[in-house]
Design a protein around this nucleic acid. Structure first.
Length: 225
DNA sequence: TTGTGTTTTACGACCTCC
DNA sequence: GGAGGTCGTAAAACACAA
């Protein structure tokens, strides 16, 4: 890739060769060219470039300012980037030699590539979170619908309970009435039974019997037993 | 052809690590 | 302090619709 800047026509110019190897497409070299005595404008003590030279230099400068890497170069850089996103010095040098680029260019390419990779990754992350959020919103809607349905059911059930409880309370009156009558009846019965029991209470009966039939005249001693 | 938006290359400022 | 990183930005290159 190392080249010498030559005129469109060697015949016209003789030779315009730089004393140093010139890499087309580097600002540094253009600056070097300008600083080493040549000028692309009216000379102020410098050697004036001929028209073709100026044209070449301006073109070179334009090219230098921005030189798109070839597909092959980009492919190799991409391959290298896939293997390792960081660029250690030795790898940078060897890539630069392999691609015919400045190590600086390789470094810059890696810096920019990392930036692109990061921004794409962030975009992916953003899309993933957005999609998760959308799913969550849909789920929330479904749950809210479900809650509404359940509330509706609950309200209906409560109405039904309330309706039934009114009916039950009417029945309860009958039941209570029945219970109260039956209890009074049973009280009567109990009293009857009690009376019966009292009536047959043998002690009472026995005492009464003895008093009335045998113990008359036994004196008070018997009661003193 | 031209206006416009996007991508790519390059650089400066600043930061971190050894 | 130097090397190498990120970040923000300029500007060329490129794509594409009007």
């Amino acid at each position: 890739m190392i080249a010498t800047l030559q005129g469109d026509s060697e015949a016209e110019s003789g030779a315009f060769r730089l004393s140093k190897p010139w890499r087309p497409g580097t600002v540094m070299e253009y600056s070097y060219l300008m600083s080493s005595g040549f000028t692309d404008n009216t000379p102020q003590g410098g050697k004036r470039l001929r028209r073709w030279q100026k044209k070449a230099v301006v073109a070179a400068a334009a090219e230098a300012k921005k030189r798109k890497l070839s597909d092959e170069q980009v492919k190799l850089l991409e391959f290298s980037f896939m293997r390792e996103r960081k660029l250690e010095c030795r790898r940078k040098e060897s890539l630069a030699v392999e691609l015919g680029l400045d190590p600086k260019q390789v470094a810059v390419w890696f810096q920019n590539r990392r930036a692109r990779w990061k921004s794409r990754k962030m975009e992916e992350e953003y899309l993933r979170l957005k999609s998760e959020n959308e799913e969550a919103v849909v789920e929330k809607c479904q749950l809210e619908k479900e809650v509404l349905k359940l509330k509706e059911r609950l309200s209906k059930t409560e109405e039904e309970i309330s309706r039934l409880s009114i009916g039950i309370s009417g029945d309860q009156k009958d039941v209570r009435a029945l219970e109260s009558s039956s209890s009074s009846l049973s009280t009567v019965n109990h009293e009857v039974v009690a009376e019966d029991i009292n009536a047959v209470d043998w002690q009472e009966y026995f005492i009464d019997f003895m008093y009335s039939n045998y113990w008359i005249g036994w004196g008070d001693d018997f009661h003193g037993m």
